[in-house]
Write a protein that binds this DNA or RNA. Structure first.
Length: 698
DNA sequence: ATTGCCT
């Protein structure tokens, strides 16, 4: 708690030196916001001007005592924004009317950023997932466009409308298409009736149709993904340009500034008017701002930008309202049974009269092919009449990843939004920003690529004041990478899922509930397309070899998943070239392909699904883009070789030395700053150093 | 080899 107060105290003191903002003024006039907990009621606004001196710990402590007693009430009502014509009446109505957005009270991040954005400051805003960041930048940004005397909204709707394809005043960049569309939907709600025109530009849609729409209707606010934005802004032939652009918004800013996106984002910036000639405000929003992107942030924003941070530095940026559980799986093949068991247990409790919301989960996987196999397997399971008549029978089982056609992606997202209960099998395409209502569970299968990914995925539940649960299923051999990569997180060990620890190489009787689950999953997987299973194996090859303690263990676990879990006879071939690239060798247990034969025959030969039956659709081509192959289609089955006997494979689960400990990983705060993300700028504390006696167990 | 992102 101490660390929190200190941070708050410093920030508050700094804030007092800044010009008094309207929100501060409003704050003192308004009744204090009734916060559900002190955790979220505290907030910090601080200036990060590069010349600002860093305070010593002693100074900070002194300020704490001075500043702590008077906590300002920082949250305001939307209706109060009408004062001084701060925000257009129409916008306020759109927000508060029961038949429209039906919101009343601003969230912290909304109230803390509104004035700064209207003032025109550059901002980096950090707030937890699901706390209304989108609205926080939309409302003042749309207001700023209305405030611009050169923007004429009065004639919109008539033929003589003065808006056009070069009237873009604000640009919002999003890392995924669905998020861009979602922001646009919200923007249109806010802008309704104001005459402001909101347009989108994302990939996977018809470029020409989108351009025609912009040309016909005009555009004040453009929302899009990096590739398409770059495309239309760089191509003079499109007629779409932004010579009057005043606002650039990076949603999920840390993602857009990371290696994968930064070049595109920089190029887009270079296509915008010179900021020394046309004044430009840049806004960055995210729940996570790892230390290593701060340099990029500073380079992109004006030197006097404001850092609004509602996540206290000793706090894990996840909701304390979302309990997080860690499940060790015996093998990689145990994850899907454990997922089914989780759903079943929940629905059983509902059947027994517990007041629980319907099971609505997102299952996250680290590769697209794995999402596909898993979704296909569950859809196969769901075809049985037993399943259909069980308490899981009404679940929607949907899949989304970047390899699907955009039409299917959109359909899955829409269907999952509407679904009362179900599972969305997802890659990281939905990890950030997506707002699916009433998600009760987020299940992450395998350790995610980084801590930010973990946090954002988890943030798909527990939104807008609702409850939710987070689950991480992980192989024992991922333990080290879990600690190193994810750092401090409030996960509690959970051993309630029996199928997570079952030895799937055994035969199970349908008499037990675990046996039934295992048999259902095995059967569902048997019916899946063999080629997709190979792609899943290949896809996981990259992540598991990076996640496991050793490559050898990773290969053994994968091989077992493939043969025991996927019910395949022989292992996918890995070309000598790839093996060399990945630093694998024969000893690791991979099946080395014959490069020349593979080239000659191309792709892979269809090998044996042992248990596959006819009759069912194999999941196969339900519209995946490019036949689900991105670049070199490798991975053949090795011919001949071990004909399905499993004895040749190591059984994974070497668990020597591991102790299961009690379930105590609850949410406690040590004195040290939980803030991490310091992966590059300074040496990380070792895991053990950062844990006191009553700290997180995992 | 692994996510997402203009054709």
């Amino acid at each position: 708690m101490l660390g929190t107060v200190r941070r708050f105290g410093v920030s508050h003191a700094l804030r007092a030196t800044a010009p008094r903002s309207i929100s501060a003024r409003l704050a003192t006039q308004l009744p204090k916001w009734q916060a559900p907990s002190t955790l979220s009621s505290l907030a910090a606004t601080r200036s990060l001007h590069s010349s600002f001196p860093r305070l010593s710990a002693a100074t900070a402590q002194a300020i704490v005592e001075e500043a702590e007693p008077s906590k300002p009430a920082i949250i305001t009502e939307f209706s109060d924004l009408a004062a001084d014509n701060l925000i257009h009446n129409k916008i306020i109505k759109n927000i508060i009317q029961p038949d429209r957005m039906n919101l009343k009270t601003m969230t912290e991040v909304q109230s803390l950023t509104l004035n700064e954005i209207v003032k025109g400051d550059d901002i980096l805003a950090q707030a937890k997932t699901g706390t209304g960041k989108t609205l926080a930048f939309l409302v003042p940004t749309l207001q700023n466009i209305l405030n611009d005397p050169s923007v004429d909204v009065s004639k919109v709707g008539r033929r003589s409308a003065r808006t056009g394809p070069s009237e873009i005043r604000a640009l919002i960049i999003s890392p995924t298409r669905e998020l861009a569309e979602q922001i646009a939907v919200e923007a249109k709600k806010v802008a309704f009736g104001t005459g402001l025109i909101v347009q989108t530009a994302v990939g996977g849609t018809q470029k020409r149709a989108g351009l025609a729409k912009i040309q016909q209707e005009g555009c004040h606010l453009l929302i899009g993904t990096p590739g398409r934005l770059k495309d239309i802004l760089s191509d003079p032939w499109t007629g779409v340009s932004a010579p009057k652009l005043n606002t650039l918004i990076l949603d999920e800013a840390d993602r857009l500034l990371d290696q994968g996106f930064a070049p595109d984002v920089e190029e887009i910036q270079s296509l915008l008017p010179d900021p020394t000639k046309v004044d430009r405000q840049t806004l960055m929003f995210s729940a996570t701002v790892p230390r290593e992107v701060m340099q990029m942030v500073r380079q992109t924003l004006k030197p006097d930008f404001k850092h609004v941070n509602t996540v206290r530095e000793d706090e894990v940026p996840t909701h304390h309202r979302v309990p997080q559980k860690l499940v060790y799986t015996r093998g990689l093949e145990n994850s899907l049974p454990a997922l089914l068991e989780l759903a079943q247990n929940w629905q059983k409790r509902r059947d027994n009269g517990e007041e629980l919301r319907p099971f609505k989960a997102i299952a996250y996987f680290n590769s697209t092919a794995e999402t596909k196999v898993s979704a296909d397997a569950f859809n196969n399971i769901a075809r049985s009449s037993e399943f259909r008549h069980s308490s899981l029978g009404n679940m929607r089982l949907l899949e989304i990843n970047s390899r699907l056609t955009q039409a299917l992606r959109t359909r899955s997202a829409d269907n999952f939004r509407k679904a009362r209960e179900g599972i969305l099998f997802s890659s990281d395409v939905t990890a950030r920003g997506m707002d699916f209502p009433d998600v009760t569970h987020v299940v992450q299968i395998g350790v995610p690529r980084d801590r930010e990914t973990y946090i954002h995925r988890l943030g798909r539940t527990g939104r807008a004041g609702k409850e939710g649960e987070g689950w991480l299923f992980m192989h024992r051999a991922e333990q080290d990478v879990y600690r190193k990569r994810l750092g401090r997180l409030p996960l509690a060990l959970d051993t309630s899922l029996e199928s997570a620890d079952a030895d799937l190489s055994q035969t199970f009787s349908n008499d037990t509930s675990v046996g039934k689950i295992v048999n259902q999953v095995t059967e569902g997987l048997s019916q899946c397309d063999g080629a997709t299973k190979v792609k899943s194996y290949m896809g996981q090859l990259g992540t598991t070899t990076g996640n496991f303690n050793s490559k050898k263990e990773a290969i053994q676990a994968l091989n077992q998943m493939f043969t025991v879990g996927y019910n395949m006879q022989s292992l996918p071939e890995i070309s000598p070239r790839l093996m060399q690239q990945m630093g694998l060798n024969r000893i690791d247990g991979v099946s080395m392909g014959n490069g020349s034969r593979q080239r000659r025959e191309g792709g892979f030969s269809r090998g044996g699904d042992r248990g596959s039956r006819g009759g069912f659709s194999r999941g196969g081509d339900r519209g995946e883009r490019d036949g689900f192959s991105r670049g070199g289609d490798r991975g053949g089955f090795s011919r001949g070789g071990d004909r399905g006997e499993r004895s040749g494979f190591s059984r994974g689960g070497d668990r020597g030395g591991f102790s299961r400990g009690g379930d105590r990983g609850s949410f406690t705060r040590g004195g040290d700053r939980g803030d991490r993300g310091d992966r590059s700028s300074r040496p990380r504390r070792s895991f053990d150093d950062s844990f006191g006696d009553d700290s997180f167990r995992f």
